[in-house]
Design a protein around this nucleic acid. Structure first.
Length: 235
DNA sequence: CCAGACGTTGTT
DNA sequence: GTCTGG
DNA sequence: CCAGACGTTGTT
DNA sequence: GTCTGG
């Protein structure tokens, strides 16, 4: 779940929403309506000493202990909330390297393998979403620069998602940002945040299969199909 | 003790 | 069928 | 997540 | 790096 998402957030919007520390270098952000794993995308995290930054990182977490080259690394796009505190790949990132992944929405597919049908899920009011994430830093043995990468937390579905899929990303609201990003927050408080999103905010609708290809781009990818209901009716 | 894994998703 | 790449 | 590849040899 | 399996 959540193997494709969208974001149109500008640096200014990101700076204000997440209270990025003044002086952090601005990122040159382009709208992306088809973010795929391995893309370099902005994440928000607390700095070690103090303050908060937004940096580009690779979608697909590479554990710090990974041996071999980047091509042999497992692609960890998602991390299940239910097991994130204990699994080898996520334990340390969950304890000390949490982040927020800015998004507008995400895609999900239904149907059989030969005919997968994409849906878009976003905020009903057109607002942004803040996905709970983990990041890690992997140092290649050949001396090339460190690679920062991230995974998106998943949990069970809310009422909007249930007809479409059995998992959904964890979304955080502004009152939760500080605690989620703060390295000192205790595990029980963190785990309590990893809940399905409230039922009254999201909408889901069918979109064109054009988004199936990772080469497709453009705002029209999130436009609703005509002749299709705005509410999920499958399953 | 050492060797080997370390992950999620979907679909049949 | 299964793995890799984006 | 889906799409696309899935391989070796030799020559430029 | 750390845990699990043998």
């Amino acid at each position: 779940m959540c193997g494709r998402y969208t974001t149109t957030m500008t640096w200014r919007e990101m700076h204000d929403l997440y209270r990025i520390t003044e002086g952090v270098p601005a990122l040159n952000l382009e709208p992306n309506y088809n973010v795929t794993p391995t893309s370099r995308m902005p994440i928000v995290r607390d700095r070690e000493a103090d303050g908060r930054e937004a940096v580009l990182a690779r979608w697909g977490l590479i554990p710090f202990w990974h041996k071999g080259d980047i091509k042999t690394a497992r692609m960890l796009n998602n991390a299940r909330a239910e097991t994130v505190s204990s699994l080898a790949s996520f334990r340390e990132p969950f304890r000390r390297r949490r982040c927020i992944v800015p998004a507008d929405g995400f895609y999900e597919w239904t149907g059989e393998k030969q005919a997968r049908l994409p849906w878009y899920i976003g905020m009903g009011d057109g607002g942004t979403l803040s996905m709970a994430g983990l990041w890690d830093r992997w140092e290649p043995k050949d001396g090339s620069p460190p690679v920062d990468s991230f995974a998106i937390l998943t949990t069970g579905p809310n009422k909007i998602m249930a007809p479409i899929h059995e998992r959904m990303p964890v979304f955080l609201d502004p009152p939760q940002f500080d605690a989620w990003l703060n390295a000192k927050t205790d595990a029980p408080d963190l785990l309590a945040m990893l809940r399905p999103y409230r039922d009254d905010a999201l909408i889901a609708y069918r979109v064109s299969t054009e988004v199936n290809s990772n080469r497709s781009a453009g705002a029209h990818l999130t436009q609703p199909l005509t002749d299709e209901p705005r509410q999920p009716t499958l399953l």
